Amino acid sequence: MEVRTIKVFTTVDNINLHTQVVDMSMTYGQQFGPTYLDGADVTKIKPHNSHEGKTFYVLPNDDTLRVEAFEYYHTTDPSFLGRYMSALNHTKKWKYPQVNGLTSIKWADNNCYLATALLTLQQIELKFNPPALQDAYYRARAGEAANFCALILAYCNKTVGELGDVRETMSYLFQHANLDSCKRVLNVVCKTCGQQQTTLKGVEAVMYMGTLSYEQFKKGVQIPCTCGKQATKYLVQQESPFVMMSAPPAQYELKHGTFTCASEYTGNYQCGHYKHITSKETLYCIDGALLTKSSEYKGPITDVFYKENSYTTTIK
């Protein structure tokens, strides 16, 4: 009895394709271990004539594949690729409408935090270190965002349907971005203890939790000093293409032309909904596939993004 075979390709990165001759009487799992086709788990399936010449994702289970996976995804987590594939199996079914010149995501599976993050990423200057993220990001900007969303979920250790947080998501993504040249110098002034300067680099240099107003941050924000008295913390120097200011959701007025974009969060910790506000020729609110415009805006804002380049204080 002759062994019926077909020729397929296996890959971990969709760049390096490895030619395989597979036995049609055995499952993919018996031949390769966990195997995925377009995100779908085909591990328990036997090869079919229609699979001839198709590319299958496999887990990096030998040295060659491990090197290829690390170079593309910059992670050695053995569960990463499987999590990416199972997320992709959902995100490829989502709709990605162009809204006001940006790629958004039609609401499904509690994905409003991903839509808000995706919209924000198209408006701030950011370059990702893992080629996987950078490639998928370019495709997302062009309207094909399924891979990018699935990668975000995998890097953030999230599953489809789980509630997510924009600030946490951005923080994970910033860790995989090139923020080497970003720098922030802060000064804390206390009447009792004097003053202390701190220099922050990388992710810490672009994120701040405690106030939404970048102007206020430049002037000074009140913080408790270690001595128990009130101290003032203010920005001395900022070198970065953008800054992200966050605070627990509270009524906040966004003035046209003073910011790049913002995240609105309605609801409580267990259950809520994100919308995205962007400042173009007027203010726009993007909620999944829905767009509304207004000249002014007041609502429960939790993150505001500002364009920056270089700032030095005039406070002496």
Rank of each mutant, 00 (worst) to 15 (best):
T103Q: 05
N110R: 01
T314K: 15
E308M: 05
A142H: 14
H276N: 07
N268C: 15
Y269C: 11
C261F: 02
V58L: 08
D135G: 03
V236G: 01
M244R: 11
Y113Q: 03
S86R: 12
M245R: 04
K54F: 10
L126K: 04
C193P: 02
G299H: 10
C149G: 06
R167Y: 07
P241W: 04
G202E: 01
L200V: 09
M170F: 07
P130M: 03
L65W: 09
T312Y: 10
Q251C: 12
Q122M: 03
H51A: 07
H256R: 09
E296K: 09
V206A: 01
I152K: 04
A132I: 02
K233L: 15
G210K: 01
T260F: 06
Y138M: 14
K233V: 13
N178L: 05
V236Y: 07
E204P: 10
D180C: 04
G143W: 02
L121P: 04
K218T: 01
C149Q: 07
Y172P: 01
Y284N: 04
S213T: 03
R4Q: 07
E162D: 14
H176Q: 12
T226G: 13
A146W: 09
L212G: 05
S213H: 11
I286N: 05
E162P: 01
T232L: 12
A87V: 06
L173A: 05
C156K: 00
L121H: 04
G288F: 02
C285A: 11
A108N: 03
L200K: 07
G220T: 04
N187H: 09
S294C: 14
N61M: 14
D23E: 12
R4D: 14
K7R: 14
H276M: 12
C225D: 05
C156T: 11
T55F: 07
K7H: 13
K191W: 04
K255S: 06
A262E: 00
R139E: 14
I315D: 15
S79C: 10
R141P: 04
T19N: 14
C285G: 08
R83L: 09
L126N: 00
A262F: 01
G101D: 01
V189D: 14
N100A: 12
P241R: 06
M24N: 13
P34M: 14
I223G: 12
T103E: 03
K127E: 15
P47G: 07
L291F: 15
